[in-house]
Design a binder for these strands. Structure first.
Length: 263
DNA sequence: ATGGCTAACATGGTTAGA
């Protein structure tokens, strides 16, 4: 049976307006078939659709003023686009889903949570519960499902540069990790860990205190795959190169490769 | 050292990120 490669990426760009040149430069060499963005921070009317069309991308976006904002883009048609979590009232634009080459892709920007004692943390956990219910139903409908994005949860202490300093903090707390684990218990797999990876593999580094230079980061940007899709995964890497560029996003893109059936 | 830096909105200083 013949297969075709499918390279799927997620990138929190921290303002698409500022990072459009970075995206253009990265796409020129990264050979990406589909891409989920987070923190576009732009209303849909201002979304740079023409610039992305010029890069050979199409798809959908779901943004708001100042905060949040997601986009799902691909080199082939993106169909059945759904914005937000159906049935969950949320003023924040954090999810967009679509189907690309037979793969259902759900792009998420999970709430940060700010601090354990914050209302935003309560919102984060409630939001993750709504996401879990949504994904349970999507798993039933779509054997080939990818859930990608900025999860704002480091799955394990391996994914934290200083586990002691981060212990019990937002992004590593037990309740957040349990919420992520419950997604994995439904069959979604963090494909990054299917493969041998370098020590200190992270996807986010604080802008402050030379965190990137010190390799003081967290791995919070993930690509989860359903069993049938995970079985087709041939690799997953963090591309740290754009984090070295001038005026970078604080997140690096993560890329997973799949061999899809070519029927 | 509880700061450090960046972006949006606004046009000085606040909010938010993680």
């Amino acid at each position: 049976m013949s297969t075709l490669p499918f390279r799927l990426a997620t990138w929190n760009v921290n303002s698409l307006k500022v990072r459009l040149p970075h995206l253009q430069q990265w796409l020129a060499s990264a050979s990406i078939d589909a891409l989920g963005l987070q923190e576009t921070k732009t209303v849909d009317a201002d979304f740079p659709g023409a610039e992305l069309t010029a890069l050979g991308l199409e798809g959908g976006w779901y943004g708001q003023k100042t905060y949040n904002g997601v986009a799902l883009l691909a080199r082939s048609p993106v169909t059945d686009i759904v914005r937000g979590i159906p049935g969950y009232a949320d003023e924040q634009t954090r999810v967009i889903a679509g189907t690309v080459r037979g793969v259902r892709v759900i792009d998420c920007y999970v709430p940060n949570g700010q601090a354990i004692d914050s209302d935003k943390y309560t919102y984060k956990l409630a939001w993750l519960s709504a996401l879990r219910d949504y994904l349970a139903s999507e798993l039933e409908r779509h054997p080939q499902l990818a859930v990608i994005g900025d999860f704002n949860i480091a799955p394990d202490d391996r994914d934290v540069h200083d586990p002691k300093a981060w212990e019990g903090q937002v992004l590593t707390s037990a309740a957040e990790r349990a919420a992520l684990a419950s997604l994995c218990q439904m069959g979604l797999e963090d494909v990054f860990r299917r493969f041998e990876q370098p020590e200190k593999s992270y996807s986010w580094w604080d802008y402050r205190a030379m965190a990137f230079r010190r390799k003081a980061g967290l791995r919070i940007d993930l690509i989860l795959a359903s069993p049938a899709l995970a079985a087709r995964c041939t690799g997953c890497t963090v591309d740290v190169e754009p984090r070295r560029w001038e005026r970078p996003s604080d997140h690096a893109p993560v890329v997973a490769s799949f061999d899809l059936a070519a029927d």
